[in-house]
Write a protein that binds this DNA or RNA. Structure first.
Lengths: 113, 113
DNA sequence: TTGATATTTCCATAACTGTCGAATTAAAGG
DNA sequence: CCTTTAATTCGACAGTTATGGAAATATCAA
């Protein structure tokens, strides 16, 4: 990932509602969520959410698929990987940050990716 | 890290000059870089860079230390770890992203963190 | 104290971003 | 073709962010 794209992706995530929307899409997994359902779940007007989803889409962090009348949105894990990878490579001192301490379960088996 | 802070950190990095400034600070390591030197290296007016550094500072991604007449800025690796950790926990499907594919050396031994 | 150096703060202005109702487009089904 | 449903685009406005010169602040050294 090159820095122009990283800036775009960071900017796309740098907003309350967009970060929340993205998180919900991540949690929803491969099923994705329809725009309207997401708007309702978040308590945001359709037009507002549509605006935000367009930015995430344009930044390549989510993908869109029409299913009948609905537009299903899904998180693009590859893109997120690329962003995290970029940050680790360029913004964490080259080799890697010290091992992430957080609550990520460091299991052997990884639950269905 | 909680989402309000994550949004602030993401926003701080979501701009060309700030991302570049932060990258340079990361590369400079513990020595840090003086504001003026950074401005000159980047070819940006002092007042403009000062504005951007203030945002990175406010987001907690860098720290400031006065040394004589100069203000030395340094990247705060802890904060960056926290941000990357947040993204991995919340925005990569819970367990973790699939192994980062990029050019990070996936060696057994990790080079001096 | 005076002068020089390093940086920030102030200010005005330009540019971009966020909000959300209303109008529009797209698809499905009588 | 007409209606209903799902979503986006448009448009206007408010709010925020970026830019950079000029003025102010802080430090050092004589």
């Amino acid at each position: 990932m090159e820095s122009k794209l990283a800036v775009k992706a960071l900017g796309a995530l740098a907003q309350d509602q967009r970060l929340e929307a993205f998180r919900r899409l991540v949690q929803a997994g491969d099923d994705g969520v329809a725009a309207g359902a997401l708007a309702e779940a978040m308590g945001v007007p359709n037009s507002s959410l549509s605006f935000h989803l367009a930015q995430l889409l344009h930044a390549g962090l989510i993908v869109q698929q029409r299913v009948g009348r609905s537009l299903i949105y899904r998180a693009d894990y590859e893109a997120m990987n690329a962003l995290v990878g970029y940050l680790m490579e360029n913004c964490c001192g080259g080799a890697a940050c010290s091992p992430v301490s957080s609550s990520i379960p460091q299991k052997e088996e990884r639950s269905a990716a």
